[in-house]
């Protein structure tokens, strides 16, 4: 009984400390995670749900992550992979097919601000993995190696996915938006 009471008190104290530490970190990081989640999912409801699951998984792992300085990277990794997995777990076979993007010839483009806004709308049409690469590389401004680490793929795949995504967006801009003229 004594042991149980003593253990219970210790556990409560530990939980309280954990909640305080995690709560402080969560308060500071939640807006940034929500912004990245919005860019990954494209809608606020899904973004909020994604962040909630991500924070919950970080909370569950809080005691295992010894170095607090790596927690931001860990959370980012959970966020991105959770977003991928929600989609991938049921649709894996189809993604293998849809990843084969059509080849496009190189073009020189010019985009105005309105075109950029429309261009962003077409980011949503990218395969989810490519969209993650785009967000991590050009919004989070991670290096290719850091992006590869977050996504658990090779640097070569990051390069090829980013290149294919940009080629698709460029082609979309031409085909659907009529932006820019081909230079010869």
């Amino acid at each position: 009984m004594h042991t149980a009471t003593h253990s219970g008190a210790l556990m409560a104290e530990t939980t309280s400390t954990k909640d305080a530490e995690f709560g402080a970190w969560m308060t500071a990081r939640q807006p940034a995670l929500l912004r990245t989640a919005y860019l990954l999912t494209g809608d606020h409801h899904s973004a909020e749900d994604l962040v909630q699951t991500t924070l919950a998984k970080v909370y569950l792992s809080w005691d295992k992550v010894q170095k607090r300085e790596v927690i931001d990277g860990y959370a980012r990794r959970v966020l991105v992979n959770e977003n991928n997995s929600v989609w991938r777990r049921a649709w894996k076979r189809r993604e293998l097919v849809s990843d084969q993007l059509p080849e496009r010839t190189g073009r020189h483009d010019s985009y105005d601000e309105g075109g950029s806004a429309d261009l962003w709308a077409h980011v949503a049409t990218l395969p989810r993995k490519q969209r993650a690469v785009i967000v991590l590389r050009y919004y989070e401004e991670l290096s290719e190696a850091e992006t590869a680490e977050v996504l658990g793929i090779s640097v070569g795949t990051v390069k090829s996915q980013a290149s294919r995504a940009l080629a698709t967006l460029r082609a979309t801009a031409h085909d659907r938006l009529g932006l820019g003229e081909e230079e010869r």
């Binding site: 261009l119 919004y139 401004e141």
Partner: peptide
Amino acid sequence: LAAQLGRQMRHEVEGLDRAPLSLADVKGRA
């Protein structure tokens, strides 16, 4: 194009400074 995408994405989330989730929300999901 990458630079424009970066700018556009930052513009898309400009002002998105909310923190809608409480610790209770997160612990419930956990």
